[in-house]
Structure formats: structure tokens, C-alpha cells
């Protein structure tokens, strides 16, 4: 992506003072130039190296059947061919994930703000939260599927649980950690409980809330894809499971890569939302 930049700069071009100073005496200008171009792009370099390693491993190692370990190129083709199916799977997954995630975020924030600011509620709920929150939500999956009428409600329930706890716990600690000066100012202004929660405690706790939402987001994908391995008829986790069952490993690997990409995008989206919402944090 930055090829044009590296082409434009002639090898003999004088280095900027800052870069030149960093180069040890005696280093060849060409080496210095390469180092300079690579600076800040180490991540891409690593990915390229990984891709190369994958290519070499899949063509030269003969670990097992080549169907089990497809080359990058074969995987890419499988990805391209499966794209319509993957997109349909994404829609199907998101129909469960998005409402369950939003509902859990809403419930986690609302309840977390109340519990975090009301000592009696905190005393009432803390013991239960300590007991229930560490249970890995994946263990609910078989029961949820048996208990709830449709797969969607069951998967939605498990996603909800997976998102609710991190959001709730972070919101509670954020609300409880409200600096005294904000509390004093709110009292001086005579804010009522509702206003106080919405206009003071909620924004003040937002940094905590966002870290809870971030953990919850990753969790929600884990919960959903695991649930889909159990009993879905469509979706991302289902896609991977389906082609693994038919030993179509290029498509399966493509499904894994695609899922990773979707999660990455979702996290990026949340990160942007966070930057906008927390503009006031120094």
C-alpha cells in the first residue's frame, strides 16, 4: 500500500536529519533507506512473513494431505467462491448477535449504574453477581437450546449473558469510582437521581463502560459461533462447521479468516464510537 512512496525516493536522496542521526556511522545508505521505509510498518511486514511461511509450509512440508492444509492461493479462491454464502451467513449471525448485544449493553449499563450508585442494591446483588458472572456462558448453550423455543432465542440468550456481565461489572465499578468532586457538584446543583445517573454518572463511567463493551463484543462472537456449531442452519460458525464436516478445508479456513475479519471490523467500529464519545478524556 505504500509502494509508491518507496519508489519515488531515490536512493541517493539526502536523509532527513532525524533519520540520518539514527543511522549508525558506516551503514550503507541503501540499508538505511530500507530501514527507514520499514519504520512503522513492522506489523505489515510480520503479516507478509506469516503469509510467506504459510505458503512454504503448505507447498513444501507435506505434513499431511494437502486438502487439510490448503495454500494461501487456494484459500483465497475458496473465499471468493464462498463470498455470497459467507455474506448470507453474516446476515444470519448478525440477526441474532446485534439485538442480543445491544440489549445486553443497555441492560448492563442501566443496571450497572443503579447498582453502582445505590449501596442497598449493591449489597443485594453483589453476592449473586460474584457467583454468576464467572460461569463461562458457553456452558449454558446446550440447556438454552433445549429450554428455549427456537435456536435464535437460545443463541441470543447466550450472547446476552456473555455481553451482560462484562458490561455490567465495568459499569458498576465505573459508577462506584465516580470522583467525589462530580458528586459534590451534582449535589450542589440539586440533580435528581435520574438526571444524576444519565448526565453525570453515565458519562463519567463511559471509559469503563467501553472497556466492558469491548470485552463483551469479543465474547458475543465467541458465544454465537460456538452456539452455531451446536445447532444452527446458517451463520458464520455454522459455515465453518459445515465445511469441516465435508472435509472442504479450503472453505473452512476461508470461513475462519472471514470471521476474523468481521470481528476485526466490529471492534474497529466500536473503537471509533469510543473515540467520538470520549472526546473529552485527556
Amino acid at each position: 500500500m505504500n509502494v509508491s512512496e518507496s519508489k519515488v525516493i531515490p536512493v541517493s536522496a539526502p536523509l532527513p536529519a532525524k533519520a540520518a542521526a539514527r543511522v549508525a556511522p558506516g551503514t550503507q545508505p541503501a540499508t538505511a533507506l530500507v530501514l527507514r521505509i520499514l519504520r512503522g510498518r513492522e506489523g505489515w511486514l510480520f503479516l507478509a512473513g506469516l503469509l510467506l511461511l504459510w505458503q512454504l509450509a503448505s507447498t513444501h512440508l507435506h505434513l499431511s494431505s494437502k486438502y487439510l492444509f490448503p495454500t494461501p492461493w487456494v484459500t483465497l479462491r475458496a473465499l471468493w467462491v464462498s463470498l455470497p454464502e459467507l455474506l448470507k451467513g453474516t446476515v444470519s449471525s448478525f440477526i441474532i448477535l446485534v439485538p442480543a448485544y445491544l440489549l445486553a449493553v443497555f441492560a448492563g449499563i442501566a443496571w450497572g449504574l443503579l447498582v453502582g450508585t445505590t449501596p442497598a442494591l449493591h449489597r443485594m446483588f453483589a453476592a449473586f453477581a460474584r457467583l454468576a458472572s464467572p460461569v463461562p456462558p458457553t456452558v449454558y448453550i446446550p440447556y438454552a437450546i433445549a429450554l428455549l423455543p427456537t435456536f435464535r432465542t437460545a443463541a441470543g440468550f447466550v450472547v446476552f449473558i456473555g455481553v451482560f456481565w462484562p458490561v455490567f461489572l465495568n459499569t458498576t465499578s465505573g459508577a462506584a469510582a465516580l470522583p467525589q468532586r462530580y458528586r459534590d457538584n451534582a449535589r450542589i446543583l440539586g440533580l435528581k437521581k435520574g438526571e444524576y445517573l444519565w448526565r453525570i454518572v453515565f458519562p463519567a463511567a463511559l471509559p469503563h463502560i467501553f472497556s466492558g463493551m469491548n470485552v463483551g463484543l469479543v465474547f458475543s462472537f465467541i458465544m454465537l459461533t460456538v452456539a452455531e456449531l451446536f445447532g444452527a442452519s446458517a451463520g458464520l460458525g455454522r459455515f465453518v462447521q459445515y465445511y469441516a464436516d465435508y472435509a472442504d478445508y479450503p472453505r473452512m479456513v476461508a470461513g475462519i479468516l472471514y470471521t476474523g475479519l468481521v470481528v476485526l471490523l466490529a471492534i474497529e467500529l466500536l473503537e471509533r464510537l469510543k473515540k467520538r464519545a470520549l472526546f473529552w478524556v485527556k
Binding site: R181, N185, I188, G190, P203, L206, W280
Partner: peptide
């Protein structure tokens, strides 16, 4: 506290958001 008595603290009185 009452609106009859306004208070200015040493710093960080305003809500930063």
C-alpha cells in the same frame, strides 16, 4: 445542599463532557 447556596470549588467544578 440547596440552590440557595452556590459553591465554587478549587478546580474541576465543570463537567468535562
Amino acid at each position: 445542599p440547596s440552590l440557595e447556596r452556590g459553591v465554587v470549588f478549587q478546580d474541576y467544578s465543570l463537567f468535562p463532557w
